[in-house]
């Protein structure tokens, strides 16, 4: 299953709006200009997700994970490699002595940033597609990629796909790359793509 150019265009537009709102929130938090770059989006079967992220994911991944349920259900994830997670937390909290490990405060920061970004993206979908989804409380997980993917329970009995959004946080000449991943079963994905087609019709 591939995204048509129109679907790709509609998704990019929606995510751009959500990213710009999140960037505004992060800028206000830090009093610095935060940029969230124009995303690149791909769609792949979940079995190929680890391969898709190959090279980015080495060792533990810091992931903010939220389950969403409703007419469209699935898992939403903000994935950062460990160094990226540390750097993002340092960038956002500024002035602290950088730590080699994610402490409780770093975890709080990353969880809240993930919560804002994931909700902004899925909320934007919900508003424009006229559906309402319910979110679980966000959780930060530190795990190897395979263990993480095995923990995604929603719709695990059906064929699932992942929308992968390349994400780049930029601030103070620093950049942190991550991935926003939305895992959907085929039924939810079909629903989303049909709604996107109608949006562009």
């Amino acid at each position: 299953m591939n995204l048509s150019p129109q679907q790709q265009d509609a998704l990019t537009e929606l995510i751009n709006i959500a990213f710009s709102r999140t960037a505004a929130a992060l800028s206000e938090m830090t009093n610095l200009r935060v940029l969230l770059d124009v995303p690149r989006i791909t769609l792949c079967p979940i079995a190929e997700l680890a391969k898709q992220l190959d090279g980015f994911v080495v060792g533990e991944v810091a992931t903010v994970h939220q389950i969403f349920t409703g007419p469209v259900s699935g898992d939403a994830l903000l994935m950062l490699n460990y160094e990226g997670a540390l750097m993002l937390s340092d960038m956002l909290t500024g002035g602290r002595v950088p730590s080699p490990r994610l402490d409780a405060s770093d975890r709080e920061v990353l969880t809240e940033v993930g919560n804002i970004l994931l909700n902004a993206c899925l909320g934007m979908f919900g508003n424009l597609l006229k559906v309402h989804v319910t979110f679980s409380v966000p959780r930060l997980q530190l795990a190897e990629i395979h263990a993480l993917l095995n923990s995604l329970m929603i719709g695990s009995d059906e064929l699932r796909h992942a929308l992968v959004v390349y994400t780049n946080f930029r601030m103070r000449d620093n950049a942190v790359t991550g991935y926003l991943v939305i895992v959907l079963g085929v039924a939810s994905l079909d629903w989303l793509l049909t709604a996107l087609d109608q949006l562009g019709a």
Partner: peptide
């Protein structure tokens, strides 16, 4: 952080005075 219009509607209907999204200003 939940910016869905339906969530805002539900919160206002449940007695919230106002809704401020965490994303944005």
């Amino acid at each position: 952080a939940d910016i869905q219009e339906e969530t805002q509607r539900q919160a206002l209907a449940a007695g919230a005075t106002a809704f401020v999204p965490k994303s944005g200003q």
